[in-house]
Write a protein that binds this DNA or RNA. Structure first.
Length: 892
RNA sequence: GGGGGCAUAGCUCAGUUGGUUAGAGCGCUUGCUCGACAAGCAAGAGGUCAUAGGUUCGAAUCCCAUUGUCCCCACCA
């Protein structure tokens, strides 16, 4: 193996190798270590039908940053991965496959054979996504990988169902549900997506049975008229008062229905009279209940019309609508039509129009379960980050309705209810009863499966062994944080919370860390149908997983959507490249010709004594960063943390420290070099650790090339997180280096302005007094080399400054470049004028503040003193600027 | 119908309990093959923080209103 890094940063050359090593050496494994505190995250399980998309990449990277950070902090960090069986999506795929391969329907195949095919499908394709997950660098404990339909999860689901049933919180009933005719199953309310669409109101006359004019009613769904059982009007509506109690006929049929009074109709809407179809409309159902009306259905489960529709029987609902409207219009019952925006419900899986239907289904009674879940958020025991999402969570729970959990599907957890073939007996039980306890008849299990989200809701504890009291459950549960997108708070977060409180008596997690959506470059939602999705695997191939991860976790604030922009990806890749090269520089200076490490000063008080200002400066900066990064990570401010590490590495380590240290490294004594090596390695190691959660691959790869101390772990990912140390804040040294930096910047500025080529060595005169002189003089060597000067003359006497000079005013000194041929008084004058403007403005602003009695009286003392100091500083600078300006003006 | 978010440089976005000369990346201008790096180095230009009020000694930050924009929820007369 080469002893130093390759010349160019090429993530493809090491990312897969490093992941394989981590995994094979068990670096991701979490142990129940009694000496450590647990830190647990369960991964939101991706669907086995899914392809890895940017949403996963974002969601999982956030989790991996947290897990890697906590692991380094010394927690026993468990990130539990898995996948979801995705009832509807998988069943649809398997049905299609059987149709294509064998030309059969699932019914022809039968339940048992179908499930065999489904498991086979899962075996072949279900692992794809977990392979893709590895490419992101995720440090999850694959030995604990779970599947929502594995044996343990199934046991948990059945157990939970039975418990809820026994508590009276699960019931079976004939109620209004959302029906997707294409998927052929019921849906929960959360699975229906509402969308406003352009549609029509048709106004039809329902003639009175006594030959009167009858009543005109508006509807957007004429095909449901066959299921009408009444016309409702508001009891106070003067227009219809007289008609209440009379009968009208459904046009073109012989069915007579009453006109009833109910407060439900809105007098402003339509004609103020509403047709009541209890089997196909939620509100109508309730009206029907209040008035004890029949609830006839006129639409079948496959969305065709049934016998009630007479000659339209067998027609599709939308075809029927067309024919029926045409016939009514021809017969003169159509009064008018009106264009209208109509909110339509669509299936969240297949997007087809959902039909509200009356159906026999299983429900979870929500009111009681919601109470503790609401309480947990209100008391602060459950915290949303950012907290604005708590409102969404609460609003949903406070308006919750019963949850329809049965699905007319085979792929899923089969409902543990058994019906006697002989009598009416029904039993809910974890174990299949051998026979009916009442009549001894044979028992038949309910045909339906449970909503996928019913099993997802148990994920934080079913995966740890519940309902058994396993050691894992004992140690790792409750989990610490749940990371997810705001789009599935309703589907998942809410349900996990009330399920966990009910099943385990504890919250499933302390924090809900919510992130936004990854949108495309134009801000559009990425979707398969729009074809604007960006494949994370392609991005990784092109830029490396580290660049993708860094891009996804920085430059955004929690909970907000982000646009996927290639330029930010490139910037992240460039940053990785920068770190790569800086590391190459460090390693290059550590190695001798044979590729062995040269002597390095040891970690000792003697070494500490040999540190120069710049060494202490960079150590202070890194130390300061450790404090900041840790504190913002504690607040889930990942972007701020990543940004800070970026700045330390690029703007402080690379831009300054490496440049400042080159003199000693190339021309210093062996002892000095050994000290430099010590500082470089120490600082590099610390920044690698801090960057590691964000960019695990490159940091681990570089780590492998660095010299290890005796007790070091094999992997960077298992090293301890850098601790802030108050003793490492070297204030005086920092001041001296920063003053040198200010001088260097000013001289470079003059150089650029005077158009002196960078290669030309200049002379400089620096004027300062007292402590300021001491301070700036300490940086002489740095100023000379980084500003490319031939020599510097320090003076405390302005009369020593030559007349033909370019000048710059610093806060505590002045620098002069006395090369006559470079002097451009016009430029000098313009720049100084600008500087004068700026300083005068500041002085005026601060002066105003300090003249304000309110400010002096009420602002904190520190703020007032800071302002006073600033004022003095600016005044001193302005004085010098005016002096130079005066000179420049005379020369013009 | 109800609720929420957002509005800061040409673009994409940070700005953590109110107090710095309001920042970054990209883009733009100018100059650089000096022994880590052109995926780079150096120096710059560019913002009345949507608008109008209010609170405060002090507002990009807190409150109210307006405008624009995006989203969520809601039983399709």
């Amino acid at each position: 193996m080469e002893k130093n890094l390759a010349k160019t940063y090429d993530p493809k050359s090491f990312e897969e190798r490093i992941y394989a090593r981590w995994e094979s050496k068990g670096a991701f494994k979490a142990y129940r270590d009694p000496e450590k505190k647990p830190y647990t995250i369960v991964m939101p399980p991706p669907n086995i039908t899914g392809q890895l998309h940017m949403g996963h990449a974002l969601d999982q990277t956030l989790q991996d940053v947290l897990i890697r950070w906590k692991r380094m902090q010394g927690f026993s960090a468990l990130w539990l991965p898995g996948s979801d069986h995705a009832s509807i999506a998988t069943e649809v795929k398997v049905v299609e496959k059987i149709r294509d391969d064998e030309g059969k329907t699932k019914e022809e195949l039968g339940r048992e054979e179908f499930l065999k095919r489904a498991w086979e499908w899962k075996r072949i394709y279900g692992g794809l996504i977990t392979q893709q997950v590895r490419k992101l660098g995720n440090s999850c404990d694959w030995d604990r990988e779970r599947f929502t339909m594995d044996e343990g999860c199934n046991k948990a689901v059945i157990e939970f169902f039975v418990r809820l049933y026994e508590r009276g919180l699960i019931y079976r009933g004939n109620r209004m549900i959302n029906w997707c005719p294409v998927c052929g199953t019921s849906l929960s309310d959360a699975e229906v997506e509402h969308e406003d669409k352009n549609g029509l109101y048709w106004y039809f006359r329902y003639p009175a049975t006594d030959g009167g004019a009858g009543i005109v009613v508006a509807t957007s769904r004429p095909e449901t008229m066959f299921g009408d059982v009444a016309i409702a009007v508001h009891p106070d509506d003067e227009r219809y008062k007289a008609l209440i109690g009379s009968f009208v006929k459904i046009p073109l049929t012989e069915r007579e229905i009453p006109v009833i009074a109910d407060t439900y109709p809105d007098r402003e809407k339509g004609t103020g009279a509403v047709k009541i179809t209890p089997a196909h409309d939620m509100n109508d159902f309730e009206v029907g209940e209040r008035h004890n009306l029949d609830k006839p259905s006129c639409i079948n489960e496959d969305a065709t019309m049934n016998g009630l529709a007479g000659k339209y029987e067998g027609m599709d609902r939308f075809e029927c609508r067309k024919a029926w409207v045409r016939d009514l219009a021809e017969a003169g019952y159509l009064v008018k039509t009106e264009e209208k925006v109509i909110p339509l419900g669509g299936c969240y899986r297949c997007n087809s129009a959902v039909e509200p239907m009356l159906s026999e289904q299983w429900f979870v009674s929500m009111k009681e379960l919601a109470v503790p879940a609401i309480e947990a958020a209100k008391s602060g025991e459950l915290a949303h980050v950012p907290d604005k999402f708590e409102k969404i969570y609460l609003h949903w729970l406070e308006n919750i309705r019963d949850w329809c959990i049965s699905r007319q599907l085979w792929w899923g957890h089969r409902i543990p209810a058994y019906y006697c073939e002989e009598c009416e007996e029904m039993v809910v039980s974890a174990l299949a009863p051998a026979e009916c306890s009442k009549c001894g008849g044979a028992m038949r299990q309910d045909e339906d499966a449970l909503d996928t989200w019913f099993s997802s809701a148990l994920w934080p504890f079913s995966t740890l062994g519940w309902p058994e009291k396993t050691e894992d459950l004992e140690y790792f549960y409750p989990t610490d944080v749940l990371v997810t997108g705001y789009d599935i708070i309703f589907f998942w977060v809410v349900r996990m919370v009330f399920s966990a409180l009910e099943a385990t008596g504890e919250l499933p997690f302390r924090y809900v860390f919510v992130h936004g959506l990854v949108r495309d470059g134009e801000g559009q939602k990425m979707s398969k149908s729009a074809g604007n999705g960006i494949d994370p695997l392609e991005i990784i191939d092109q830029f490396g997983a580290d660049a993708l991860r860094f891009m996804l976790t920085t430059g955004i604030s929690p909970g907000n959507d982000m646009r996927f922009k290639t330029d930010r990806l490139e910037a992240s890749r460039n940053f990785a490249n920068k770190l790569w090269n800086a590391s190459r520089f460090v390693i290059m200076n550590l190695l001798d010709d044979e590729g062995n490490f040269k002597e390095m000063a040891p970690e000792s008080p003697e070494t500490l004594n040999k540190l120069r200002d710049e060494d202490k400066w960079i150590i202070s900066k890194v130390n300061e960063a450790a404090l900041y990064v840790t504190s913002v990570l504690d607040k889930f401010e990942l972007a701020l943390a990543g940004q800070k590490v970026y700045e330390v590495i690029w703007n402080e380590l690379c831009d300054w420290y490496i440049e400042l240290v080159k003199g000693r490294l190339y021309g210093g004594s062996e002892e000095e070099k050994a000290v430099c090596r010590y500082v470089l390695v120490r600082v590099l190691k610390d920044v690698l650790k801090m960057l590691h959660p964000f960019m695990p691959f490159i940091t681990e790869e570089i780590w492998g090339y660095l010299p290890k101390e005796g007790n070091s772990e094999e992997f960077l990912m298992l090293e301890p997180w850098p601790e802030h140390n108050e003793a490492l804040n070297y204030e005086d040294e920092v001041k001296r280096i920063e003053m040198a930096m200010e001088a260097i910047r000013n001289i470079r500025n003059i150089r650029a302005e005077a158009e002196a080529p960078p290669s030309r060595k200049l002379r400089a005169v620096i004027y300062a007094l007292g402590d300021d002189m001491e301070c700036i003089k300490a940086g002489e060597e740095h100023i000379r080399s980084l500003a490319n000067l031939s020599d510097i003359e320090f003076t405390g006497d302005k009369s020593n400054v030559p007349e033909e000079v370019m000048s710059a005013v610093m806060s505590r000194a002045e620098v002069f470049i006395p090369q006559g041929d470079l002097v451009d008084y016009r430029a000098e004058y313009d720049r100084l004028s600008k500087e004068k403007e700026r300083l005068s403005g500041e002085i005026e602003r601060i002066g105003g503040k300090l003249a304000n009695a309110g400010f002096i009286g009420k602002a904190p003392e520190k703020i007032v003193n800071d302002e006073k100091e600033k004022l003095a500083k600016y005044k001193g600078m302005l004085e010098k600027v005016l002096e130079r300006l005066d000179l420049a003006e005379k020369k013009l």
